[in-house]
Design a protein around this nucleic acid. Structure first.
Length: 1149
RNA sequence: ACGGACGUGGCGGAAUUGGUAGACGCGCUGGACUUAGGAUCCAGUACUGCAAGGUGUGGGGGUUCGAGUCCCCCCGUCCGUACCA
C-alpha cells in the first residue's frame, strides 16, 4: 500500500469534523494554554503559500501543548469589517456583507485544506452584530471614563463629576498631562460647576473622556473619503490603496491613547516579544525628556490687524476657533450673564439688527479670543462695540482690545451709547455699509445652528503673550539665537508684523498647501520667513527673532522650537541659510562646520552652566527656569491620540446620539446599534458619511453619529471573545477570562507593530483599569513569522505597434535570456535582424515604436530549469491580453529561458503560489512540513516549489517504515533493491521485536531534539531531525512498534493526517491528537566512546577514539603516546595540551 | 540620518552558544534498475590541487590553546521610523 495523501487527508479531515476532535471546553481542571493567530482580514485574493506559515507554526505548538496535557485554546475568526470590501462595494454595488461572506467561505475552505486544529465553534466575526455589540459596549465604557493621572488609571467619568461637584477643578486638577492633549480647561469652583449649563459641562467633560469628540488635525484621504490613523499612513499615502493624504482639521472622534503612553512603554519590558517589535513600539511612542520653556513676546512690538488670516483654517471654515480655550469655560458663563442683562443701548441696537435685519446673522455677547464682544458678524469678521459710560475710563484697555481683535482678523467698529439711543436706524445703516464692504470669510458659518458658539469645543490654545517650546536640551539655552514656529502654529498670524505680513502669509499658504508627501520629499530644502516679532530670552533678556519654518512640525511638542544652531544641525542649517547668528554651546565645537550634537560635551556658555557636563547642565537649566517661572522639566511623547471615526459605511456604528449638538451615549439596552441599510455606499451630496443616507438614523428623534469605527476597533479585544464567544450578557464571563487569561503565544506579522498591537494593548489596559480583566497585557509572548517571498520569472520582451488596415495592433516578441544577452553583449547583428524579421512576421505594415522591457511571466508556466512553457504563456489571457501574433526567439536547443528574481509574492508580479495547488499535488502534510523546513520561522525567505520534493520523499520514507515493500519478500532482503513503484505492493508491516540500542538512540535523540526545538520554535531543525531519523531507521531496516509509535506521536503536530492514519493502523481507536507526548530518556543517548578531534594549534588533523570515562590526564597521555601524533610533533615536546572531555583535544606546538 | 535585524557552498539553511564549519533538503555529477524517467536506489558534491597539502563563514584588526560565534573599525543587504527639537 503506497502512501496516497489524497484519500488519507480527506478521510481524516472529515473524521475530525464529525468527531469534534478540536472542540475546546473551558475545562478548568487542566492547565490552560492559549495560542492565537493574528486576526485575518478575508480579502478577495485568497491565501497564498506565505499566509499559512504562521498558522502552521502556531498549530504545531497548539498540538504539541495538547499532547503535553494542556487544555489548548486555538481559535480562528475574521476581522471582517474594512475598507477593501467597501471599495469593492462602491465599484460593483454589491453589499460588502455579501462579498465578505464569499471571501470568508473561500478562506475557510483554504484553511480547512491545511488541516489546522482550530476550534471553529468559537469563530468570531467583527461584522457580526452579536460581536460588535460588545465593541460598541467597550466604546461606551471608554466614553464614560477619564484618566486619573494621580492614580495612573482610568476611572468612571461619574467619579470625576462627583469630584467637580464637591471640589470643582482647581490648581493641579485643571492640568491634564497626557502628552498630546495637554490642555488647560480653566479653573472653576464647585459652585461654578453646578451653575454651568448642561452643554458647558459636557464640553468640559470632553476634555477628559477616553473616547472624545474634538477638532483635531487628521490625515484626510480624499480618494478614500475618510480620515486615517497615523499608522494607516505610510510615506504620506494611505497604506491601503496608496492614495495621497492631506492634513486637515475637523471634528473627530479620538481615543486618548496618549494617556497610556508611559504605561504602554513600561509594559514592554516584561513582554516576551522580539526586540525589534518592542523597539518599533518604543519609537512610535517616542518618549523624550526635556523641558518646557516659555519665551515672552516683546510687548513694545505692535502687531496690527490682518483680516482674513487668523482664525480660519485652510480648507475648512466651518469649524473655526475663535474662542480662546484657556478661559473659555469661564467666559461662556459671563457672556450668558451679560446677555441676560444688556445695557439700554445694547438692547436697542439688538432689536434693530437681530435676525436677518442686516442681511446676515449678528451674534451678541460672543466670545472671541479672551474677550466678550458686544456684537459680531462671524462671516464678515466684524465686531460692533457699543461703548458704555465707563468707556472713557478704560480707553487704553479698549485700544488693546481692538488691537487683539485685529490680530484675530476682526475689524472693530465702535458706536457711542448716545448714537445708538438717538438714531438706531442710522447705526444699523452704518453697520450694513461696513458689512457690505467686507469680504465673506466664512460662507458656511451662517448655516451653523443657533447656538452661541463658533466651535463645537474649545480648542487648544497657547494663551498669553508667550511662545512655549519643548526642548530636550535646555542646557543649550544660552545658544538660542532665534525661535522657529511651524507654519500651522496658531501664533504665526498673531506675531507677524504688518510689514512682514504679506510675505509670511504667502509662505504659510505655500507650506500648508503642500501635501505630506511633497513636504517629506523636500526635507533637505531650507525654507522659512521672519515674522518681524521678537521674544525675550528668559536668562539673558536678549531679543530673539521669531521665524516661521516648515522644518518645525506642528504635531510634535508645541509646534515651536527654540533654535540652537550651535547644538542642533537643523537649526544650524536654517541659521546658515538665513545668515542668523550661531553661538557655540559646547567646548571645542567648530560652529563653522556644523552643530555639535554630542551629549557627552561640556557646556561653554558664559553663566551658570559654564563648565558643566550636558546631563548636569540640563538639570541646572531646568532648576533656573523653574525659579524664573519660565519653564519646567517635561516629558514629551510622539504618540498622538488615535483618530477613531471613519467616514465610511463598512464598520461598527458609533453608539452616540446628539442632543443640541452635544454627544450622548446610547443606553446599553439599545446595543447593538445595527449598521443600517443605505442606498449607496458613498458620501451624501453635502459630504456627510454614508450612514447619513440611512432612513431614520436617529434615536428618540435625536440624530445618531454617522461615522463608523476604524478597522482596529474590533480587533482590539477579539482575543477575549474567543474565551466565551456565545455569551449574550457580557463580552466574556469572568470565569472564562480568569481561566484563559493572557495569550500565551501570539503569532502574526511584524507589520502590526505600531497599529494593531498598540491599540490591542491599550484596550486591554483600559479594561483592566475598569476592573474587567485581571491582567493588563494581552499577549505574553509574540512571534512574528517572516514573509515568504515569491520568485518571479521575467522575460525580455520587444513590443511594437503595427496596423492591420485601420486597426492598430501590438505584436510582441519574447527573447530567451541567453540569446538576448549574447545579442546585447556581442552586438550580434544576425540576431537583431532576426528580431525585426520576427516582429514583422505576418503583418502588412511595418512595425514601429519598438521598445524593449523585462516583463513578467506567470511562474506557473516556468519549469525547473527556468524554462518557459511557451504555449501556456501564449494562452495566458490575463498576462498577454491584446498582444497579437506572439513570437519567441529561443535558445539554439529550442528552449526559452526566463530571468529569476526574488521579490514580494503578489498577484501583480505573477509569482503567487497557491497552497491549494501544492496540496492537491503533494498533500497538506507535505506543505506543512515544507513551510517549516524552509528556514527559521521569523526570517523572510523565498518560496521554491522545487525543494518540496525533499519533504514529500521524507513522508513516503516514513510511511514505508510501517510497510514492507513486497508481500512476497521479507523486508530484510528488499531493503536496497530498487523496485519500480508501480510494481510495488506495500503491506502493513510492523513488528513487536524489542528495539536495539542504536534504534533506541535514534528514537530518543529525535524525541529530545524535536521537543527542544518546538519549545524554542525552531521547526526547520526539527524537520531535519525527523529526516535523519527516518534515513537511519531505514538503513537499520527498523519496523519496530516501540520505535515507530512514539515517532508517530512526535510527528503528529507537524503532519497530522499521516500520523492519524498510521496511528490507527497501529491499532489505536482514539485520535493521535490526544496521545501523550513521548518523553526522551537520556540513558539511551549515552555513548561509551567519543571520537576526539585532535587539533594542532587549533587546526583539526585527525580523530582518535577513547572511552568517555577517561580523565583529562589519561586522554592526554594516550594522545601523546599515539605514533601519528608523535610523527606530527617531530620529536618536539608540545608547549601545551588542552583536553576538553567529550569535546576536543588541542595540542599547542 | 537614526533605530533594529542580518551577512556561512550553486540555492534554502545547520553548527550543542567559544570546541571537528557546511547537518538536513534542493540542485548538480557519476552509477544501478529500466522501453522510458521530472520514479526509486547507491556513491560523490565548500574552494583549490593529480596528490600530499593549502585556503575558507562580507573586509580589516584584536582577545583566546582554540573565533562563524566575543570586542573594535569598515563595507553591504533587509526592515522600521523619518526634519520628533
Amino acid at each position: 500500500m503506497a502512501y496516497e495523501h489524497k484519500g488519507i487527508e480527506k478521510k481524516w479531515r472529515e473524521r475530525w469534523k464529525d468527531r469534534g476532535t478540536y472542540r475546546v471546553e473551558n475545562d478548568t481542571s487542566k492547565p490552560k494554554y492559549y495560542v492565537l493567530d493574528m486576526f485575518p482580514y478575508p480579502s478577495g485574493a485568497g491565501l497564498h503559500v506565505g499566509h499559512p506559515l504562521g498558522y502552521i507554526a502556531s498549530d504545531i505548538v497548539a498540538r504539541y501543548k495538547r499532547h503535553s496535557g494542556y487544555n489548548v485554546l486555538h481559535p480562528m475568526g475574521y476581522d471582517s469589517f474594512g475598507l477593501p470590501a467597501e471599495q469593492y462595494a462602491i465599484q460593483t454595488g454589491q453589499h460588502p456583507a455579501k462579498t465578505t461572506e464569499v471571501n470568508i467561505a473561500r478562506y475557510r475552505e483554504q484553511l480547512d485544506n491545511i488541516g489546522f486544529s482550530f476550534d471553529w465553534s468559537r469563530e468570531v466575526r467583527t461584522s457580526n452584530p452579536d460581536y460588535y455589540k460588545w465593541t460598541q459596549w467597550i466604546f461606551l465604557q471608554l466614553f464614560e471614563s477619564w484618566y486619573d493621572a494621580r492614580q495612573d488609571k482610568a476611572r468612571p467619568i461619574a467619579e470625576l463629576i462627583a469630584r467637580f461637584e464637591e471640589r470643582g477643578c482647581m490648581g493641579q486638577d485643571a492640568t491634564i498631562l497626557t502628552g498630546d492633549v495637554e490642555e488647560f480647561v480653566g479653573e472653576f469652583s464647585a459652585a461654578e460647576w453646578k451653575a454651568f449649563e448642561e452643554r458647558t459641562k459636557q464640553m468640559v467633560l470632553q476634555h477628559f473622556r477616553l473616547a472624545y469628540l474634538s477638532d483635531a488635525w487628521v490625515n484626510w484621504c480624499p480618494a478614500l473619503g475618510t480620515v486615517l490613523a497615523n499608522d494607516e499612513v505610510k510615506d504620506g499615502v494611505s497604506e491601503r490603496g496608496g492614495h495621497p493624504v492631506e492634513r486637515k482639521r475637523m471634528p473627530q472622534w479620538s481615543m486618548r491613547i496618549t494617556a497610556y503612553a508611559q504605561r504602554l512603554l513600561d509594559g514592554l519590558d516584561a513582554l516576551d516579544w522580539s526586540t525589534s517589535m518592542k523597539e518599533a513600539q518604543r519609537n512610535w511612542i517616542g518618549r523624550s525628556e526635556g523641558a518646557s520653556v516659555r519665551f515672552e513676546i516683546k510687548s513694545d512690538l505692535t502687531p496690527s490687524p490682518s483680516p482674513g488670516e487668523r482664525g480660519t483654517i485652510p480648507g475648512d471654515n466651518r469649524f473655526r476657533e475663535s474662542a480662546n480655550s484657556f478661559i473659555w469655560s469661564k467666559l461662556i458663563v459671563r457672556a450668558k450673564d451679560m446677555r441676560h442683562n444688556p445695557t439700554e443701548a445694547e438692547d436697542r441696537l439688538w432689536q434693530v439688527i437681530r435676525g436677518n435685519a442686516t442681511g446676515g446673522r449678528i451674534r451678541r455677547q460672543h466670545i472671541i479670543d479672551t474677550f466678550i464682544v458686544d456684537f459680531v458678524s462671524l462671516p464678515k469678521q466684524l465686531v460692533i462695540e457699543v461703548d458704555g459710560d465707563i468707556h472713557d475710563l478704560q480707553k487704553d484697555e479698549d485700544a488693546l482690545r481692538t488691537l487683539r481683535l485685529g490680530e484675530e482678523g476682526f475689524k472693530v467698529i465702535r458706536f457711542r451709547n448716545e448714537e445708538v439711543l438717538s438714531d438706531p436706524q442710522e447705526v444699523k445703516r452704518k453697520i450694513i455699509e461696513e458689512l457690505d464692504a467686507r469680504p465673506d470669510f466664512n460662507k458656511d458659518d451662517v448655516e451653523l445652528s443657533d447656538k452661541e458658539h463658533s466651535s463645537p469645543l474649545p480648542g487648544r490654545g497657547a494663551g498669553g503673550e508667550v511662545i512655549e517650546v519643548f526642548t530636550t536640551r535646555p542646557d543649550t539655552l544660552f545658544g538660542v539665537t532665534f525661535i522657529t514656529l511651524a507654519p500651522e502654529h496658531v501664533l504665526v498670524g498673531k506675531y507677524t508684523t504688518d510689514d512682514r505680513r504679506a510675505e509670511v502669509e504667502a509662505y504659510v499658504k505655500t507650506a500648508s498647501n503642500r501635501s505630506e508627501r511633497e513636504r517629506q520629499a523636500e526635507v533637505d530644502k531650507v525654507s522659512g520667513v521672519f515674522t518681524g516679532s521678537y521674544a525675550k530670552h528668559p536668562f539673558t533678556g536678549a531679543d530673539i527673532p521669531v521665524w516661521v519654518g516648515d522644518y518645525v512640525l506642528a504635531g510634535y511638542g508645541t509646534g515651536a522650537v527654540m533654535a540652537v544652531p550651535g547644538g542642533d544641525q537643523r537649526d544650524w542649517r536654517f541659521a546658515k541659510h538665513f545668515d542668523l547668528p550661531i553661538i557655540a554651546v559646547t567646548e571645542g565645537a567648530d560652529i563653522e562646520q556644523g552643530a555639535d550634537e554630542s551629549k557627552d560635551a561640556t557646556i561653554c556658555s558664559e553663566g551658570f552652566l559654564k563648565g558643566l557636563k550636558v546631563p548636569d547642565a540640563v538639570r541646572r537649566a531646568i532648576q533656573e527656569l523653574e525659579k524664573l517661572n519660565a519653564g519646567e522639566g517635561r516629558i514629551n511623547f510622539r504618540l498622538r491620540d488615535a483618530a477613531f471615526g471613519r467616514q465610511r459605511y463598512w464598520g461598527e456604528p458609533i453608539p452616540i446620539y446628539y442632543k443640541d449638538d452635544i454627544p450622548y451615549p446610547l443606553p446599553e439596552s439599545e446595543l447593538p446599534l445595527v449598521l443600517p441599510e443605505v442606498d449607496k455606499f458613498l458620501p451624501t451630496e453635502d459630504g456627510e458619511p454614508p450612514l447619513a443616507r440611512a432612513k431614520d438614523w436617529s434615536y428618540n428623534g435625536h440624530p445618531l453619529e454617522t461615522t463608523t469605527m476604524p478597522g482596529w476597533a474590533g480587533s482590539s479585544w477579539y482575543f477575549l471573545r474567543y474565551m466565551d464567544p456565545k455569551n449574550e450578557g457580557r463580552f466574556a464571563s469572568p470565569e472564562a477570562i480568569n481561566y484563559w487569561q493572557q495569550i500565551d503565544l501570539y503569532m502574526g506579522g511584524a507589520e502590526h507593530a505600531t497599529g494593531h498591537l498598540l491599540y490591542f494593548r491599550f484596550w486591554t489596559k483600559f479594561l483592566h483599569d475598569r476592573g474587567y480583566l485581571p491582567f493588563d497585557e494581552p499577549a505574553k509572548k509574540l512571534v512574528n513569522q517572516g514573509m515568504i517571498q515569491g520568485v518571479s520569472a521575467k522575460v525580455w520582451s520587444v513590443y511594437g505597434a503595427s496596423y492591420e488596415g485601420d486597426v492598430e495592433v501590438f505584436p510582441s516578441l519574447y527573447i530567451s535570456t541567453r540569446a538576448y544577452y549574447s545579442m546585447a553583449n556581442a552586438a550580434d547583428y544576425g540576431l537583431v535582424q532576426k528580431i525585426f524579421a520576427e516582429l514583422n512576421h505576418g503583418f502588412t505594415s511595418e512595425v514601429t515604436d519598438i521598445s524593449v522591457a523585462r516583463s513578467y511571466a506567470d511562474v506557473r508556466f516556468v519549469g525547473l530549469k527556468d524554462d518557459l512553457d511557451m504555449e501556456s504563456f501564449k494562452l495566458d489571457k490575463e498576462r498577454i491580453g491584446s498582444e497579437k501574433n506572439v513570437r519567441f526567439i529561443t535558445e539554439e536547443d529550442g528552449t526559452f529561458l526566463c530571468i529569476r528574481e526574488v521579490e514580494k509574492m503578489s498577484k501583480s508580479k505573477y509569482n503567487v503560489v497557491n497552497p491549494d495547488d501544492i496540496i492537491s499535488k503533494y498533500g497538506a502534510d507535505t506543505l506543512r512540513l515544507y513551510e517549516m523546513f524552509l528556514g527559521p520561522l521569523e526570517q523572510s525567505k523565498p518560496w521554491d516549489t522545487n525543494g518540496i520534493e525533499g519533504t514529500s520523499r521524507f513522508l513516503k520514507k516514513f510511511w514505508n517504515l510501517f510497510h514492507s515493500s513486497d508481500a512476497s519478500a521479507p523486508p530484510e532482503s528488499s531493503g536496497n533493491t530498487a523496485v519500480p513503484s508501480t510494481l510495488r505492493v506495500d503491506t502493513p508491516h510492523v513488528t513487536n521485536d524489542a528495539p536495539t540500542k542504536p534504534e533506541l538512540k535514534i528514537l530518543h535523540a529525535t524525541l529530545k531534539k524535536v521537543t527542544e526545538d518546538i519549545e524554542k520554535m525552531s521547526f526547520n531543525t526539527s524537520v531535519s531531525q525527523f529526516m535523519i531519523a527516518v534515513n537511519e531507521l531505514a538503513a537499520l531496516k527498523c519496523h519496530k512498534r516501540d520505535v515507530l509509535e512514539p515517532l508517530t506521536v512526535a510527528l503528529a503536530p507537524f503532519a497530522p493526517h499521516i500520523a492519524e492514519e498510521l496511528w490507527s493502523k497501529l491499532g489505536h481507536t482514539d485520535s493521535v491528537t490526544v496521545a501523550k507526548w513521548p518523553q526522551w530518556d537520556a540513558q539511551y543517548l549515552v555513548e561509551d566512546n567519543f571520537s576526539y578531534p585532535i587539533s594542532f594549534n587549533g587546526k583539526t588533523r585527525m580523530q582518535l577514539e577513547f572511552p568517555i570515562a577517561l580523565s583529562k590526564e589519561e586522554v592526554e597521555a594516550l594522545v601523546l603516546a599515539n605514533p601519528e601524533v608523535q610523527q606530527r610533533l617531530e620529536g618536539k615536546a608540545p608547549k601545551k595540551v588542552i583536553v576538553v572531555p567529550k569535546r576536543i583535544v588541542n595540542i599547542v606546538v
